[in-house]
Simulated scan of single mutants.
Amino acid sequence: MARVVLKGVDSLRLFKFERILNEDPVAHSLTLLGMLPDADEEGKTVQAIVRVEKTALPAQQATRLVTHFVKDVQLMENTDIYTWFMGWLEPSREHPDLKINVVCPATEVHIRKYTKQDLVMVRETPELYRRIVKPYVEAFPPSRTQWVDDILSGKSEAEKVLHRAPSPDYGYVLLPDMKWDLITIPALYLVAIANSSSVRSLRDLRKIHLPMLRSIRVEATRIVKEKWGLGEGCLRFYVHYQPSYYHFHVHIVNANYYGSMGGTVGQAHLLDDIISLLELDPDTYEGPSIFERLTLTYGLGNQHGLYEAMTEAQATLDG
Rank of each mutant, 00 (worst) to 15 (best):
S156Q: 08
G233R: 03
P105N: 12
M310I: 05
V218C: 10
L205C: 07
C104N: 01
T295L: 09
Y258P: 01
G231D: 08
V161M: 00
E127H: 10
E94K: 15
A56K: 07
T316G: 02
Y238T: 01
K99M: 12
K7W: 05
A315G: 09
Y136T: 07
L280I: 13
Q267V: 11
G87E: 08
L152K: 03
D169L: 10
E226V: 12
L190V: 00
V50I: 15
P91D: 12
L12A: 09
P37Y: 04
D72V: 08
H304S: 11
K225I: 05
D273Y: 07
Q61V: 09
A313Y: 03
L294N: 00
R64L: 10
I185G: 03
L119P: 02
V120D: 01
L317K: 02
S197C: 12
L33K: 03
D181S: 05
V26P: 01
R93Y: 08
A255Q: 13
G154L: 15
Q267A: 11
R293E: 07
A39V: 06
K116G: 11
F15P: 01
T45P: 00
L32Q: 02
A315F: 03
I132S: 04
H95Y: 13
R217A: 08
L36A: 06
Y246P: 03
S201K: 03
H304C: 06
L230I: 14
M121C: 14
E219W: 10
L294F: 14
E77R: 11
G262K: 04
S92G: 11
R123A: 13
S29L: 09
I274H: 04
R217E: 13
T63F: 00
P186F: 02
H304I: 05
K16L: 08
P166R: 05
R214S: 12
V66H: 12
T79Q: 14
R236N: 07
S143M: 12
T311D: 03
E90G: 10
L36N: 06
L33N: 03
L33T: 04
G43V: 08
S260W: 06
I252G: 04
T55P: 01
L65T: 06
M35T: 14
Q146H: 11
I193R: 02
Q303F: 08
H209L: 07
R3T: 08
E232M: 12
A106N: 02
A194G: 12
E219T: 10
N195I: 00
R64M: 13
I111H: 00
L21C: 00
F15D: 06
L280F: 15
L162T: 02
A56R: 07
E23A: 15
L306D: 06
A315R: 14
V103W: 03
P105W: 08
V5N: 07
Q61Y: 15
P105A: 10
T63L: 14
E219R: 12
G34H: 07
A59W: 10
R112K: 14
H28S: 12
D10F: 09
P243G: 06
W228G: 07
P288G: 03
D273V: 07
L278M: 13
T284C: 13
A62C: 12
W84K: 07
R19T: 11
S167N: 13
L294R: 07
Q303C: 09
P96Q: 07
L213A: 06
S11K: 00
I252A: 01
L30P: 00
L213G: 02
Y172S: 00
P243E: 06
T79N: 12
R144W: 09
K155E: 15
